[in-house]
Every structure is written in structure tokens, then in C-alpha cells.
């Protein structure tokens, strides 16, 4: 009798040990899976916010980190797109716009920038915001030139399909911004605020006044490789900016040219 009881107890213990081990293994797998997922999220988030901010969010659920930094802002907008849209079917309009935004975003990313937001047909791209980039201004203006080429290619496709060609204006300005997680409890995102963003937007508007596609400010020019071919535009008074705003049209880049 006692042998049978002992055997039964041993079997029960073995079953218990086996079940415990299985539970622990399952928990371990779930924990590892959760951590793996967290790593993936961290990598994904790092495309939208600086690594320090992502770490704060993962550790504390939020980031109170805000800082002043010097970045280069590129603002791009389609000229006359609203009027153009009035003559197109909604589906066609959305297809054309999405094709444009896709190509331009890809170009920005290829030049180490990041698209902060789309504003209708406008694009706000930042260089040097997510990670320190000593060559941010060159990258931004190279991106603007690449966007010019990408739009030419896209226009060729559009025209071949019997659709209207697009015209773009790009403004680039370098200056200080305040960055951080900005928004309400329900809608928050990493963003930059400050006069620099407004100036870039104003400069983009000036491309219409000057009849060019890419304009940079004097602050941008000062940080720029001298091999960019620039043409000075007449200084113009702009709303919200004291004094006349001097800008330069970007004509191209001489890879073999002499720096200024």
C-alpha cells in the first residue's frame, strides 16, 4: 500500500514538475516575444523620433525631453494643385497626389531627411532633427535637387498617361527650432516648432514670386557647399519677417567645381 502511495506521489510530483516547466517555458516564450516586439517597435519609432525620445517613451510611456537644436527645414508644395484638382475626378486626383508624395518622401529619406508631415499637397521635411547630422544643409539641398529630377520623371509618366504635369516649389531654411513630443493626450507626435519652420514655408511661397522651383535662404547658403550653383534673387518683404528676405535660386551642383 505504502509503495503504491509513494509511486502515486512520485507520478503526481513528476506531472507537476512537467506542467510547471511547460508553463515557465511558455511564459519565457511570451516574454521573449513581447521583448522582440518591443525591439521592433523601437526600430520603427526611430524613423519618427530621435532615439533618446524613443527610449524615454519605452521606459516611462512619455518623454518630457524638449530641446533647442539647429536643423534644416525643407518645405515643398505643388503650385496650382487646387485649381488642377477642380478639373479632375476625385479618384484621379488622389492617385496623382499619392504618386507625387510617395516619390518625394522616398527622395527625402534617401538623402537622410525625414518627412515630418504632409499638409495636403505640402511636404514638411526635416534634416538633422532625428540624429545629429553635420551635413544636414547639403543633404537638404541635394534632396531638393533630387526632388526636381524625381518630379520631372513623374511628370513624364503623367503626361504619357494623358494627365496634367505638376509644378513644385521648394523652400529650404536652416535655423534653430524647439523639438519634442507635441500634442494633446489623445494625439501626440514628435515635432519641431519655431520661426525656422515658418520661414521655410514663406520661402517656398516666394518660388511663385520669383518664378523658380527651389529657393534657399541666406542662412542656408552660409552652411552650403560652395559647389551648389546659386543665383541671388531680389530681397522681398514677407509677412511675419522683419526686413526684406534675401533668397537664392538653386540651379544645380557642380560635382567637379571649385568650392566658394
Amino acid at each position: 500500500m505504502s509503495w503504491a502511495a509513494l509511486c502515486a506521489a512520485l507520478v503526481a510530483l513528476a506531472v507537476l514538475a512537467w506542467r510547471t516547466r511547460r508553463t515557465v517555458a511558455g511564459l519565457e516564450r511570451r516574454l521573449a516575444g513581447a521583448h522582440e516586439e518591443l525591439e521592433r517597435l523601437q526600430q520603427a519609432f526611430s524613423r519618427f523620433a530621435p532615439a533618446e525620445v524613443v527610449e524615454d517613451i519605452i521606459a516611462d510611456g512619455l518623454s518630457a525631453r524638449s530641446e533647442k537644436k539647429e536643423i534644416t527645414v525643407l518645405f515643398a508644395d505643388l503650385k496650382g494643385f487646387t485649381e488642377l484638382g477642380e478639373g479632375l475626378a476625385p479618384a484621379e486626383l488622389v492617385t496623382i497626389l499619392n504618386g507625387y508624395l510617395e516619390r518625394m518622401s522616398q527622395t527625402v529619406v534617401e538623402h537622410r531627411g525625414h518627412v515630418s508631415k504632409f499638409l495636403g499637397d505640402g511636404i514638411l521635411a526635416l534634416f538633422g532633427a532625428l540624429e545629429a547630422n553635420p551635413w544636414q544643409t547639403n543633404d537638404a539641398v541635394h534632396a531638393a535637387l533630387a526632388m526636381r529630377r524625381a518630379l520631372a520623371d513623374y511628370n513624364a509618366t503623367l503626361v504619357a498617361a494623358g494627365r496634367p504635369a505638376l509644378e513644385m516649389g521648394v523652400g529650404v531654411h536652416r535655423g534653430p527650432v524647439v523639438s519634442g513630443l507635441i500634442g494633446s493626450e489623445g494625439l501626440t507626435g514628435y515635432d519641431v516648432i519655431g520661426r525656422t519652420v515658418n520661414v521655410a514655408s514663406r520661402v517656398e511661397r516666394l518660388t511663385r514670386t520669383h518664378g523658380v522651383d527651389i529657393l534657399v535662404t541666406d542662412a542656408t547658403r552660409a552652411a552650403l557647399d560652395g559647389r551648389f550653383r546659386l543665383r541671388a534673387m531680389p530681397a522681398v518683404a514677407v509677412k511675419g519677417i522683419a526686413g526684406a528676405l534675401a533668397t537664392f535660386a538653386v540651379e544645380g551642383f557642380d560635382a567637379d567645381g571649385r568650392a566658394r
Partner: peptide, 9 residues
């Protein structure tokens, strides 16, 4: 110049 622009003649 080279460090600022990554290029020079």
C-alpha cells in the same frame, strides 16, 4: 572645407 562639404577639388 572637406569636412564641411565632403568634397573639394
Amino acid at each position: 572645407e572637406i569636412l564641411a562639404t565632403l568634397g573639394s577639388t
